[in-house]
Nucleic acid binder design. Sequence first.
RNA 1: CCGCCCGUAGCUCAGCUGGAUAGAGCACCAGGCUUCGAACCUGGGUGUCGGGAGUUCGAAUCUCUCCGGGCGGGCCA
Length: 562
Amino acid sequence: MKEALASLLETALATLVADNLVPEVPDLKPQVDHTRDSSHGDLATNLAMVLAKRAGMAPRDLAEVLVAALPENTLIAKAEIAGPGFINFFLNQASHVEVIGKILASGSAFGSSDIGAGRKVQVEFVSANPTGPLHVGHGRGAAIGDSLCRLLSATGWDVQREFYYNDAGQQIANLARSVQARAQGLTPDDPEWPEDGYRGTYIADLAAAYQDGATVSAADRSITALGAVDNLEAIRDFSVAWLRREQDLDLKAFGVRFDNYFLESSLYDSGEVNETVAALEQAGHTYEEGGALWLRTSDFGDDKDRVMRKKEGEYTYFVPDVAYHLNKWNRGYRRVINEQGADHHSTITRVRAGLQGLEEGIPEGWPEYVLHQMVTVLRDGEEVKLSKRAGSYVTLRDLIDWVGQDATRFFLAARSASSQLTFDIDLALAQSNENPVFYIQYAHARICSVKRKALAQAADWTPESGLDQLDKLVEPEALTLALLLSKFPDVVHAAAQQLEPHAIANYLRELASAFHGFYNAHKLVDEGDKSQSLARLSLAEATRQVIANGLDLLGVSAPESM
RNA sequence: CCGCCCGUAGCUCAGCUGGAUAGAGCACCAGGCUUCGAACCUGGGUGUCGGGAGUUCGAAUCUCUCCGGGCGGGCCA
């Protein structure tokens, strides 16, 4: 509808240009937007205000001429000039309801587009270290990242989901020492407990499993514990596998899947880390100082240079990160999006600097990042900080256990990533009007219930048979609802383009509200007025479809009954 | 000291590629089911959009500056 009106305006504009009233403006696309206030019509354009100066006319006068030049059409009931020079369009009834037929025909594809044109994009998210259970921050990353993938798929991108495992380095060594200490019967408060050891009770579970000779299967490996307390390497391998399985189970419970798990250790095994360092040296972006090897990241926007290789000979953490991203580039991903916690934002400059220093022709802004801010958990009005299992933090599993998968996903994805998030357990638990998840799901279930009732009338009481009766939909509640439905493709497109899943959640809240209002104002199934009922049923079904499509983009279920 | 994010109603937050009178939910009050699911709906009011300056027809939105909160700034990850 927007495009149709924009095209009408273009025609009108062309007429004015031909009449020498307005100078030709190349590449000007009239902007048509939904109005915020229904007294301003259904759609509006600011075209006259944009052009007023160049045309040498007052905005309202120009709007006048534009409206007069609009071609004959069957879309709009009227066009009004208002305010400083807006042109407000009032759609006629048929234009309002035509979307219903489109939705029923497109089904789960309604809202999708092929803007991505099948191009490849890789999304890396969660990427938790295998040193403990996933915490709420990972949960937020999982909810946002997964929804981003769904949005990109819906807009025509070929998405690969990747999880990067830091299974090398100091944190893993620390993990192994912690498990070993537990196996030796130490507890975190013993004097001999390793410095900075992991204190959670899961470490004790892990140690017990190791000593029992347990076998664990994670995404890409299966390993049986040796049980020997002095074999630190065996403990490390088993611990990583054990925790990976834990994380896999958490993600499964959350409904999040990955196409690929990439191991940091593989970059060392394959020699890619060494090759990356050599390439950076070759390109002349490094120097030695104080026995360490430095990268001139300050040549690429960093505020100071960074050590790549410590004087002890080990690489710092961002070196494998650079090698990893070079690997992504070499796998052919020209678009890569990394979703991660904002506490790691300082790595962005370093990774990009490293990639620039390789002089491989990688664009400066590659890869893209979506950073989410911290999550705090509130219960009974107080911040919850501890988890029994993990000790020092609230786990994703805790949240799922407390409030369920749907509410957890919705709450974690419904706010913009750049804002800090307060997760109110009591609100998420409330099975009432306080809870937006239930509010939206309830609308869906309600429609399903109405459909069941309609079908109980007779087999031909179907939403599809209402498509011939759409002229019966004349009430404001019905037209408002239909207009909102027609916005969905724009909402999906914008959310995907701006990498902002929370826009979907906001839209769904609004849509559910419009439906509940419609439902309460008008009886959907009325034996006495079949054609009216069928028309309303088709509108309800279109609403149900859009709610289902929207919830799916968030990874939240659309129940037929609750 | 430097970088990033945030500051909008009592609370939690939308709105931010400039648009018309700044919104929603919660909380609070008053109503609405012998009828399709009341987990719902209708009505009631709330704002120095953190302060200040600038840009222009127009600023919550863009720029600068100050204040406040969070997170980073290690040869930790």
